[in-house]
């Protein structure tokens, strides 16, 4: 018999407001049920109104942890990528959302955590410490991160440059990165519109890459960012 191992919730002892903003947030039964309900509604909405189509699902790794990345041009992107995951993995999928947009007020943070299951990354404080905390969570809990290396929604809908932070998250590890391309999100819900309009959504999922041999330094991070951008472009050409 193995010795008993207690693993208290990682966010134990934090106040409600602190918990909402913690990258160590863990939900209980009620949070899990709420999120399952929210996802059933979101998937139905994406399928019925936006005729969501997903290509390349076979490229998704069976084992977690891994990171899904894509072009970013719309608030649809995170939920669209999560919708592409099988239900088992979606439970442990966390979109990395801008703290300064989604976690400023308690109301926004509650929405972002219950509906999106988002974890915050503050754009002005996304240095080594913040990324290390995220990487620890990703590996220890074997979860899925959904993130957008451009760092913000492209106002013109075209693929921008990738920031080196994605490299810093995965360099020197066996964590798989799955490049994806989302088509139609910018037309359906561009950044300058408050509410989404009609339009078809398509996701193309590429083959996973990993960067075990890449050195965990700036040059390595930048080469990862470049390589991933090319992989996303390749997905775009396939759609």
């Amino acid at each position: 018999m193995e010795p008993w191992e207690y693993r208290p919730a990682q966010d134990l002892g934090l106040s409600r407001a602190e918990r909402l903003r913690s990258v160590r947030r863990e939900v209980g039964l009620a949070g899990w049920l709420l999120s399952r309900l929210a996802w059933a509604l979101i998937r139905a909405y994406l399928r019925l109104r936006h005729r969501l189509r997903i290509e390349g699902r076979e490229n998704l790794p069976e084992a977690t942890p891994f990171v899904m990345i894509a072009n970013h041009a719309s608030h649809f992107d995170a939920i669209t990528l999560c919708a592409a995951l099988p239900a088992q993995q979606r439970v442990s999928a966390f979109p990395i959302a801008a703290g300064d947009t989604f976690f400023e007020t308690d109301a926004a943070a509650t929405f972002a955590t219950i509906v999106m299951n988002a974890l915050p990354l503050w754009r002005r404080r996304c240095g080594a410490h913040a990324l290390d905390a995220l990487r620890t969570r990703l590996v220890e809990d074997a979860c899925v991160f959904v993130l957008f290396p451009e760092g913000t929604r492209a106002r013109d809908g075209r693929l921008g440059t990738f920031k080196a932070g994605i490299g810093r998250l995965v360099a020197g590890t066996s964590i798989a990165v799955v490049p994806c391309y989302i088509d139609g999100a910018h037309t359906a819900w561009p950044p300058d519109r408050r509410f989404p309009g009609p339009g078809r959504l398509r996701v193309s999922i590429g083959r996973p890459l990993s960067f075990e041999q890449t050195e965990n330094r700036r040059a390595g991070w930048e080469s990862i960012a470049t390589e991933l951008r090319q992989a996303v472009e390749a997905c775009a050409r396939r759609t």
Binding site: Y6, R7, P8, A9, L12, E26, G28, L29
Partner: peptide
């Protein structure tokens, strides 16, 4: 359950 890890 959160303290003992039973919530998982």
């Amino acid at each position: 359950s959160r303290a003992t890890g039973l919530f998982r």
